[in-house]
Structure formats: C-alpha cells, structure tokens
C-alpha cells in the first residue's frame, strides 16, 4: 500500500521558490498497476522521485507499507529501497562494468542475500535472456537491456516497482513486449507497479491512470484495462485489486478511456 498525502515539492528559484508539485494526494493498494501521465514539466518525475524515496517532499507525507518515508534518513530510505522497491529507467541504467547476471545480482547482494546467483539466473531466464547472462550492457540491444533492468527490478521481490518512461528509448514493437512483460510480472509477483510516462497508449494499459498538469492531479481514473471486477473512481483512495490473471495482456482499446479530465492532455 502506497499513500501520498498533500505532497508539495518546491525548489528555490532566486529569492522566491518554484512549486513543482502542489498538494498531491492519492493512495495505491498493493498489487495495483498505476500510470502517471502528463506533459513535460508537469511534475511526473518529481512525483516518482518522492514516491520512491529518492528525494524528500517540502510538505506532505508518503507512506510505503505503513512506513512514513519522511521519518527515515537517507540511508534508511536506501535500505528500504533495497528491500521493497524496484526501479526501471528510461535509459535502462545498467551498470556498464557489470554483466547482465551481475547487474541483476546487485540489489540482492547489497542486502546480503545468499541465493543471489540462482535468483538472478532464474529471473533472466524468465525475461528470455538465459543465453546472455555473461554479456555486458554494451553487447545487448536496447530491448535486451531493458529486460535485464526489469529482471533487476524484480530481483529483490519488490512490494512496489517504479518505472520511469520504460519504453521511452525503445521502438514500438520492443516497447510493447516490455510492457507485456511488466504486466505479466505484475500479475505473477503481486508487486504494485507505478509507471511514469507521457505515452498515452502505454498509460492506458495500466489499470488506473493519474494525470498531472503543472504539478496538480487533474485526473485519476480507472482505464479500460482495469480488471472487470474492480471499480475505479476519481479523487484517489480507491483501490484496484491486482493479480487478476488474464486481466491486461492485450492492447488497450483506444477510445474506451473513462476520462474525467480534459482529453487534450496527451503526450
């Protein structure tokens, strides 16, 4: 369960300050598949950074599984990330000096797991890279790199996974397989997945979509991909049960979006 309450982030700008996020509140139940959309500069990445504990909010609180991130020190937040959080980045962010296998092992080794190697191997096989374990990032294609990144993100069995434009650096076909993979893993593992993107098509494949504009939530809706048994409501706080087998492997149907806000806010 991830809960954000009245999140505000301001950056000093000359003598005054610039608010990038303004009073943002919502909650995400365990296992949900959520997307955050908005144009450049709307505050998406800032919000992601705050939710993942990479940065601290100027005001407001974030609770991850009942832990108030604001109460933790930098290193305690790092430990929490190591235990409960997974990351996927637009530019993959694999460590260039490590092989695919070793990259996946890093989060496990950082927290002292003994079975790092087995698990890394299993995950890479799961993402279809069982034959490329000892390759370095530069020897892999973009799609392969992102699959390694996904394996790495899931290696520590995260309670929640954050993905920042995960398909941004990939072509359409590769992007689609990556999203499918994310969906599958979301279902299999029961991890919450939060995707930040300005790609509306991708956003639609999540079960729920939050739209930001100028640092304010302007829309919070269930998408067409949302499991039929679940309900969606604007205003936040509504849970969307995850781990529904077969709920979202297909391409979303354009035009069936239940939007409450302006449709013009596309990427």
């Amino acid at each position: 369960m991830l809960v954000a309450r009245s999140l505000t982030k301001e950056y000093p700008s000359g003598t005054s300050s610039l608010a990038v996020l303004k009073d943002v509140s919502f909650s995400v139940p365990q296992g949900a598949f959520l997307s955050i959309v908005g144009p450049s500069g709307s505050g998406k990445t800032t919000l992601l950074g705050l939710l993942a504990g990479l940065d601290t909010a100027t005001r407001g609180t974030i609770e991850l599984d009942g832990t108030d991130l604001g109460q933790l020190s930098e290193d305690q937040r790092a430990q929490l990330r190591g235990e409960k959080v997974g990351f996927i980045f637009q530019s993959f962010q694999l460590i260039p000096t490590l092989t695919a296998m070793e990259n996946v092992q890093v989060p496990l080794e950082l927290r002292g797991d003994r079975d790092a190697e087995e698990r890394a191997r299993a995950l890479l096989e799961r993402v279809g890279l069982g034959h490329r374990l000892d390759h370095f990032p530069t020897q892999l294609s973009g799609g392969e790199q992102q699959r390694v990144a996904i394996a790495r993100a899931f290696s520590n069995r995260p309670r929640i996974l954050f993905a920042d434009e995960p398909t941004g650096n990939l072509d359409v076909t590769t992007g689609a397989t990556i999203v499918a993979l994310l969906e599958e893993l979301n279902r299999e593992s029961g991890s919450t997945v939060v995707i930040v993107t300005h790609d509306l098509a991708l956003a639609q494949r999540a079960h729920r979509m939050i739209r930001l504009r100028d640092g304010v939530v302007v829309e919070d809706v269930a998408t067409a991909s949302a499991p039929v048994t679940g309900g969606a409501a604007a205003g936040g706080g509504v849970s969307a049960p995850g781990a529904q087998p077969g709920a979202a492997v297909t391409t979303p149907l354009p035009g069936t979006t239940a939007t409450a806000g302006a449709p013009g806010a596309s990427a």
């Binding site: 959080v85 962010q93 260039p96 890093v106 989060p107």
Partner: peptide
Amino acid sequence: MDTVAVLRCLGATSPQ
C-alpha cells in the same frame, strides 16, 4: 556518479 546514483536507487547505503 551515474553508477552510484543507480546503486543508491537499488538500495545501496552511502557507507556501502
């Protein structure tokens, strides 16, 4: 710096 930032994301503490 980039590698360190990633390591930090993946849960490495600054002493680590």
